[in-house]
Design a protein around this nucleic acid. Structure first.
Lengths: 367, 367
DNA sequence: CCACACAATGAATCCATCA
DNA sequence: ATGATGGATTCATTGTGTG
């Protein structure tokens, strides 16, 4: 029964479609635990009083659309609570969510995320390289937006392609502040009159980093505030499945047209750098079994400790016995030790890391 | 009567002192509407579980102080609500508040600020130039903290020294993201044993920018979580009056000694040395993220080698994978290789160096 | 005295898998 | 579920020691 329900659920999950309607209703109609990642760019609750003018009196095209007006924090909180709860139900156990916002709404969103039991992994700042200046000189240039990245629950798994992100950043660990330009130029979608099709279109570079970093190829990515479909466009190019939800028909049309033109990157291009952890585990005992090391042979540590290899793949040094890791840790008085990189053996008079032997076995395994 | 009360209040306002006690009690005992600016660095409620070790096995000195321990979000929220209410009462009508925090607490603080009727003017991101890395490679480097700047009420006046901040920023409007180093070196206060006197001492550069931007000489600045007195030290140097509140005697002692040694800047000395800007580092991955190169696109070397661009900004050529530099070096059998000048892409049938694209990004960044 | 190597450390919600 | 164990993981800056 359970299995049947699940099968049916998966079968009816509408992939790579833009669903019409209110995102809360639509999410509640989708099967639970069916989505790997949610990226959400909810309305910002901008409370603009009157129009804003540039120094030359040209009017700024402010975000004042009807869908962005809420009469109070209370109404906004109720809305936030409802869509976040619906989103949590949809997430698989190892799923995660990203929400982007500004100071107008992000504090309320973040507090509600925590209250609902989502577990914040990072807040990430999108630092805009070309923001709109503060024309009146009354505040700081509003030059960033904030994203919150959270797993479904405390302690739950999540996808994080650490090595791929490190490569994207040319060998240095990716930080929580991302410097990326705003969406303009050819990427910015226009309507029939040549005006911008959506007031807050996000750059594809932002979604590229989010999806490369926190999804794998084939994952299902849901965007409940789809707009003109940046999430869908990048997901398609990267070989992820998407589900979009959008209330406004005009946006749905623009998004559908946009995504239809996107070409998938080829498979080897989508493949990213993988972690060492993904390589097959080789027990140290295999080196002994295969004769790469002989029982009785002595290993040396960087600081001159000696240990004898035993037939069962353990080491013995003075009065310490155990695995290569345990013996290394005890000799160093350290909380842990990677025995593979710690111990050396002698070949032709030279010290060689035992990790070389592990590499050798792994190479044989992959043949 | 009202006037007399006010006069008495001002007369008894303890200036340039560090008051002992719980900040909520102490604030409630101070006269209302008597303070121009509040800078607050409340406990972050970090909720750290076990120990964390660096890859070299040394233990990270975590913030495990009793003052950062709360039983639940509910308890933290009650604390936040109480101190923010006490702070609001103290602010003059034209006063403002700054609160600094991390993702652990800042969303709850920001939401409560809004709920109490404070009016958020900006959120400002302190981007740390030298943050502690993420040692286990499980998340993004936590490389920033968030500050919220809010006036006492919607529509109320506030101080903003636009021109002074513009000068601080080499003639360009100050943005909402500030790149500043963490507090270490000679500025970091030590106790008798040579350990850090306070686990979370803030850099004076941060307070300098806050006080120059949002107070005038002679203004009263209150810091309810005074710690080792960075706010007081910078306020004194800039000719502002300060009031500090601190519960821990050890911190009060260190702060008092520190501030006693501070000399006021003379007016001409406040001219600030601007740090020289190095050419920004552009990771190759940004060309991919920003669509200047497509995953799957082929690059060529001077000697005709081909390599395919991957989604994470690495290249793949035959069986060689890695950064533009590494792949170039391996193909040439060289110890190193500058991939930026080595690789070319095709545009309009002609070979163009990828370094042209880096120049393009640098030009955008400096705009 | 200078150059260079090496060690120390900072607001951190920091593992995965198997028995 | 829980515990034991294998073994993977860091950047910028400052201070100290050595040649």
């Amino acid at each position: 029964m359970t299995i049947k329900t699940k099968e049916k659920a998966v079968a009816t999950l509408p992939l790579n479609e833009i669903l019409a309607g209110d995102c809360i209703d639509v999410m509640n109609a989708l099967p639970e635990a069916s989505v790997d990642l949610i990226f959400a760019d909810p309305p910002y609750n901008l409370q603009l009083k009157g129009d804003l003018h540039r120094p030359n009196n040209s009017k700024v095209d402010a975000v004042d659309n009807a869908w962005d007006q809420f009469d109070s924090f209370k109404a906004y909180d109720a809305f936030t609570k409802a869509w976040l709860a619906a989103a949590k139900r949809l997430l698989k156990p190892g799923g995660a969510i990203w929400v982007i916002g500004s100071y107008h709404n992000i504090f309320r969103v973040g507090a509600e995320l925590q209250t609902q039991g989502y577990w914040i992994l990072n807040d990430v700042v999108w630092r805009k390289s070309n923001p709109m200046p503060n024309f009146r000189g009354k505040r700081f240039t509003n030059a960033h937006e904030t994203m919150i990245w959270a797993s479904k629950d405390e302690g739950s798994k999540y996808t994080f392609n650490y090595e791929a992100l490190k490569e994207l950043n040319e060998g240095i660990q990716m930080r929580s502040d991302w410097v990326l330009p705003i969406c303009n130029g050819g990427e910015r979608l226009k309507d029939d009159k040549g005006d911008k099709a959506h007031p807050t279109q996000k750059p594809e570079s932002l979604l590229h980093r989010v999806l490369v970093g926190s999804t794998n190829a084939g994952d299902v990515v849901l965007d409940p505030f789809f707009g003109t479909g940046t999430t869908g466009a990048v997901a398609k190019a990267l070989g992820r499945e998407f589900i979009g939800i959008e209330r406004e028909e005009a946006y749905r049309k623009v998004a559908a047209k946009r995504i239809s033109r996107v070409r998938k990157f080829d498979k080897t291009a989508i493949a990213v750098t993988t972690p060492k952890r993904a390589e097959p585990r080789v027990p140290f005992g295999q080196l002994v079994e295969r004769g790469l090391l002989r029982p009785g042979e002595m290993l040396t540590s960087p600081r001159g400790h000696l240990a004898k290899v035993r037939a069962d793949g353990t080491l013995i040094a003075d009065d310490v016995k155990g695995s290569i890791h345990k013996v290394g840790a005890e000799l160093e008085g350290a909380p842990s030790c990677n025995g593979w990189t710690y111990w050396n053996f002698k070949r032709d008079g030279k010290n060689v890391s035992i990790d070389v032997l592990r590499q050798q076995i792994r190479a044989e395994m992959s043949e």
